[in-house]
Nucleic acid binder design. Structure first.
Length: 889
RNA sequence: GGGAGCAUAGCUCAGUUGGUUUAGAGCAUCUGCCUUACAAGCAGAGGGUCCGCGGUUCGAACCCGUGUGCUCCCA
């Protein structure tokens, strides 16, 4: 069969993926084998594959393919997340394009559109994962809004509510005035913005609540003058001498002329602004805390969309001016109020100010702090009920890779705040709470369940809570509910697959997701949800910038797969990506992957070329026996190394180790050593062993580069099964002496080639080689390899220096090169002198150490022994160099 | 403001309880080669104040302190 010039990735990818699916290799059902379970971090159902997914899922595929080849029952569960905010935003956008406003639809109508949209466009990302070669069990595809899943979320809500872990309360929440929903702290991104600091004067009042008339007052610095109409107090630090005499007095809020007290609290920083702080409990988190502490009223002056409202100002008998603000957006309002206060001559000055502003992760809108009735989980109590949530991570029952994230986890857990789980959206699991006309709350899995549990509710006018649950309130059940462990507890799947083995995810969702899965795992399964967590970093461009649509630095992954092949993309993204480190993505790494494919392909071509001229006798020459013996051991050595690296989740290093084994040891050394001369026959043993080596190499590489390895595996010879499910042979301990001899051989060849290069001998020009060694037997077995590799026409053994030659020293052996070309020993002499200086310097440093009495007294005996050996080795080396130099003259 | 982490070759990274030859790899660079598997290749080479300063130690890339720079998380 004629092989193409290069590996054609696209063809092999389509062919093998279809074949693997056809054979059902990725499907798993419980059996007597040990399970290896991974649940995919469910991408947003609206998502498309990007570099982050690529890294993440390549890692998962490597782990799951390796487990499959090690005889475990490998199960990798795919699925998607309904992603309430992101999906609802997309659907709203889609409707807007069609000229339909969400506000014109009923909840049911909107959800019908959302499902239609989800069926049509949702889950594209799962198809894209197939392109990457991901070996997921597609029969198990889950969605966080599947019927059973939905029910499991209801069940958990009701359960936690019953346990007193869920409560409803008025709390200051992060409010997104654009999507009209509360956000968790994790969904708020702080950004530095240029703003202004306004110095506003509040006039002191007399006993009757009128301005004191002398213009006396107190100046407050604020970045948010639009909230001024909600001010309820001015606060100063009790130790601030500037204001001591004002504490307890009253001032007037500009424009609205509300009389408010000056109070004192240590919270106030004296050196920020004027040292006086206006307190607006309805619009600022810290103010809210102070408000509660000092028993102050919260006056809300902004509505849900961030526009001014006078609803709560009626007590103040608002003026025409105040009423004119109604409906004005907060940013326009800021301008307007500043102008109006300015007109009253109560703005003393304005400063430029760089401040932090919270923005919505989804819509980018500046968030408001807003008092709102929301559902919460009492996290302190939750953790107190399940102390393993903390201990499992600290004592490595759940092992984090890299381990440094353990600190981050325990620090967060130690300072945990209650989790606001309600969202003012329609797409998601609607909160299973009903209100009667009196406002009483009833919680049950469904209306039917409610009527069954509390027959008194039958016939009542009940209205279900409008809100849905935070997306993470469903995804924290993922490792259990993909096996229906909540909706159908104790079923065969959950019993077999849970806890899962490894979770691979981004460290950015350590708190959003990983921590909460651990919490749910202990609460509902009584055990950890996974054994190991591999955290990936963020994928950045090669300049270290985050990938973003705005910068346009986010490559089109499918185009990359088309250009380089899926294996090359997998190689490129894995080759320099240790756990937890950000990955600087550079397309040149993909090129390296593609070149590697090509290298493999060419090695295959070489071996296939031999197939036609295999000798029909069973002789094996000495040098070939040596080469085979050496590579057998080298392969075992690397297999053992890879096993350790994989066990430590050092995937990048494992890949590099395999890459170097194939490229350097197999292609550059082994194949060159056993390669027959032009059109010469190849020994049968050499051919068969080489094919077997090649198969083992493909097996080792398969988890990383599945397509090219499967393709080559089948082209090497007729196979009875597929590489994808071929079980790894046990690793045999490598024999050290033959490995050492191999290293010596490589060194000798390199040194001789270097000497040839330095003397500008053309590759085609032959040399005569004289070997001076104490162990000529060792060289007899490999002299043919040496002569082939350094193009020596003849090899001799000598006990003496050879005149008119160049000398090369390797360990205690000397090699003399004779050539018909004129040899220029100058370059070589320079090298030898350099080496000599290096060795002498080295000896000096070792001698210094050994002559230090304290070193000899304190150092461990084996360390001293080692130093002595270094000294004698270096001395021997110097002797060899000096003899070489003498021979040159 | 609080906390965590990082800093080693041009780039991306190893460096395993402080001693394993005066620090390693891949990529990039340079030199020489169109050598019947591979120029997407082969054979070589050069390249480092291990961020600065101070300390502990017989001995420090590694431990401690401090400064600088960067990143992330939380307010």
């Amino acid at each position: 069969m004629e092989l193409s010039k290069n590996f054609i990735a696209g063809e092999a990818e389509a062919k093998w993926y279809a074949h693997w699916l056809d054979k059902g290799y990725f499907n798993s059902t419980p059996d007597e084998r040990e399970p290896y379970t991974i649940v995919i971090p469910p991408p947003n159902v609206t998502g498309v594959l990007h570099m982050g997914h690529c890294l993440n899922n390549t890692i998962q595929d490597i782990l799951i393919r390796r487990a499959r080849m090690q005889g475990k029952n490998a199960c990798w569960v795919p699925g998607t997340d309904h992603a309430s905010i992101a999906t609802e935003a997309k659907v709203v956008g889609m409707l807007r394009e069609r000229g339909i406003a969400k506000s014109s639809l009923t909840r049911e109508e909107f959800l019908a559109y959302a499902w239609e949209w989800k069926e049509k466009y949702g889950g594209i990302i799962l198809q894209q994962l197939k392109k990457l070669g991901c070996s997921l069990d597609w029969n198990r595809t889950s969605f966080t809004m599947d019927k059973d899943y939905y029910q499991s979320v209801m069940k958990v809500f009701v359960d936690l509510h019953g346990k007193g872990l869920i409560y409803r309360g008025k709390r200051m929440v992060n409010w997104d005035p654009v999507s009209l929903t509360a956000l968790s702290d994790e969904e708020v991104i702080f950004k530095e913005v240029d703003s202004k600091l306004y110095y506003v004067k509040y006039l002191l009042t007399d006993k009757d609540g009128q301005p004191s008339g002398d213009g006396a007052g107190l100046t407050v610095a604020t970045t948010r003058p639009e909230t001024i109409l909600g001010d309820i107090a001015i606060c100063v630090n009790p130790t601030d001498e500037r204001y001591t005499n004002l504490i307890g007095k009253n001032v007037l809020v500009p424009i609205i002329n509300r009389v408010i007290p000056v109070i004192a609290d240590e919270y106030v920083t004296m050196d920020f602004g004027t040292g006086a702080l206006k307190i607006t409990p309805a619009h600022d988190k810290n103010d809210n805390v102070l408000g509660i502490k000092h028993n102050l009223k919260a006056i809300d002056t902004l509505d849900a969309s961030g526009k001014f409202t006078a609803e709560n100002l009626m007590e103040d008998k608002p003026s025409e001016l105040v009423l004119s603000y109604v409906g004005v957006d907060r940013f326009a309002l800021r301008k307007k109020i500043v102008e109006d206060i300015s007109a009253l001559q109560l703005i003393e000055k304005t400063e430029e100010y760089k401040g932090q502003v919270g923005t919505s992760e989804r819509t980018g809108a500046v968030i408001e702090h807003r008092l709102s009735l929301q559902w919460f989980i009492d996290m302190q109590k939750f953790i107190a009920n399940n102390p393993e949530i903390l201990s499992a991570v600290s004592d490595d029952n759940i092992a984090f890779h890299p381990a440094k994230l353990k600190n981050t986890y325990s620090h967060w857990m130690g300072n945990i705040k209650d989790w606001c789980i309600s969202r003012q959206l329609w797409w998601g699991q609607q909160i299973p709470a009903w209100y009667d006309e009196a406002g009483n709350v009833y919680v049950a899995e469904s209306l039917e369940a409610l009527h069954t549990n509390q027959p008194a509710t039958i016939g009542m006018q009940l209205k279900q809570d409008e809100d849905v649950l935070d997306t993470w309130f469903s995804s924290w059940l993922w490792p259990m509910e993909v096996f229906k462990g909540i909706s159908h507890p104790g079923n065969d799947d959950i019993a077999y697959y849970y806890p899962s083995t490894t979770l691979v995810t981004g460290q950015d969702i350590l708190f959003f997701w990983v921590a909460r899965m651990i919490m749910a795992g202990y609460e509902y399964a009584g055990q950890r949800p996974f054994k190991d967590v591999y955290f990936t970093g963020m994928v950045r461009d090669k300049l270290g910038r985050k990938m973003s649509k705005q910068l346009g630095n986010s490559p089109d992954l499918l185009a990359l797969i088309d250009n380089y092949g899926a294996d090359a993309v997998r190689f490129g993204i894995m080759v320099s990506s240790p756990a937890g480190n950000d990955l600087m993505f550079d397309e040149s790494a993909l090129e390296q992957g593609r070149n590697f494919n090509n290298k493999l392909w060419n090695a295959l071509k070489l071996v296939k070329m031999w197939e036609a001229r295999v000798a029909d006798n069973n002789d094996t020459s000495d040098p070939n026996s040596f080469a085979i013996n050496w590579f057998t051991n080298r392969l075992n050595q690397v297999k053992a190394e890879v096993e350790i690296l994989m066990h430590q989740f050092r995937l990048s290093e494992a890949l590099k180790t395999i890459y170097s084994l194939i490229w350097d040891d197999f292609c550059s050394w082994y194949l060159e050593w056993v390669k027959p001369g032009f059109e010469q026959p190849v020994e049968a043993a050499v051919f068969n062993t080489t094919v077997a080596f090649f198969e083992e190499l493909m097996q080792l590489l398969h988890p990383f580069m599945p397509f090219v390895s499967e393709e080559i595996y089948h082209l090497l010879r007729q196979q009875s099964t597929d590489l994808c499910v071929t079980q790894d042979a046990p690793t045999i301990a490598a024999a050290v002496p033959v490995l050492q001899q191999g290293e010596l051989l490589k060194q000798v060849i390199s040194a001789l080639r270097d000497a040839r290069n330095k003397n500008q001998l053309k590759p085609k020009e032959t040399i005569q080689l004289h070997i001076q060694t104490e162990d000529s037997a060792a060289f007899k077995a490999i002299e043919n390899i040496i002569s082939k590799q350094v193009n020596a026409a003849a090899v001799f053994y000598t006990n003496d220096t050879v005149a008119n030659s160049i000398v090369v020293a390797v360990e205690q052996n000397k090699f003399y090169i004779e050539s018909e070309q004129k040899l220029d020993s100058a370059a070589l002499k320079t090298d030898l002198l350099k080496d000599l200086a290096h060795q002498q310097g080295f000896i000096a440093s070792v001698q210094k150490k050994l002559s230090n009495e304290k070193f000899v007294q304190n150092a461990k005996p084996e360390v001293i022994e080692l130093e002595r050996k270094k000294l004698s080795d270096a001395a021997a080396r110097i002797k060899t160099i000096e003899e070489g130099l003498a021979g040159l003259n």
